[in-house]
Amino acid sequence: MENILEASGLTKRFHGLVAVHDVSVQLRRGEILGLIGPNGAGKTTLVDMVNGTLEPNAGDLVFEGRSVRGLPAYRRAHLGIGRTFQIMKPFPGMSVLENASIGALFGTNGGERSIGRAREQARECLAFVGLGRRIAQRADALGGPDRKRLELARALAMRPRLLLLDEVMAGLNHVEIEEVIEDIKKVRDQGISILVIEHVMKAITSLSDRVFVLHHGEKIVEGSCGEVLRDPRVVEAYLGRRRR
């Protein structure tokens, strides 16, 4: 299987503090790759560098065979990189439908030119995540779980080839988590490659083909779910060193 994304030696420093250090990772086409790690491990920073919200200080990033380093975020969106934000960034004064329409109008390949077709596409994505009945509401009138759904629908409406999901399940209840897990599986079945950051372990184990672990900004392990979760370094990162 070829790789859709190859990150090599990505490093990001903030005022001397190293947030991500020399991380190399590959994402295969059609795969779901899980990214876990304790709070402050640099997970969101890594995703920021992939979609162009942040520029790395060192390292390279190859998407579908071409380097995207230095490209602004909107160009990467045009190439087919979509993402959700842990701290959501909706357009508060727009309706739910308009929110998703922006993704359809401007996403991959510059998006749809016709507003009518973009609305259609947005409607489909909203129905897919279960917001079909809320399309006329203002985005800032939505509750927490619905905001998460909107965040996902907006990214899907971009028709991305690579989807970066930053904690889309935080704050959801068990039933809702099950729904989102099924949704994500369906998205993958459409041929979209996915990088998923999640604290909900159940989601990681049931979704991910492979998992890698960040700790203090460095990649410490990579492999199948079972291997990674049994790895003593991962246990240590999450629980701390056992006192002897």
Binding site: N51, G52, T53, P72, A73, Y74, A77, H78, G82, R83, F85, K89, P90, F91, P92, G93, M94, E98, S101, I102, G103, L105, F106, G107, T108, G110, G111, R113, I115, A118, R154, M158
Partner: peptide, 26 residues
Amino acid sequence: SRSRFGLGLIAIRENEEGAAVMGVNT
């Protein structure tokens, strides 16, 4: 008020970073 360009501007007004990530050349 009813064009793709105008919607891009409104998206910038509502959340500029969000607009850029969704493909608007802000």
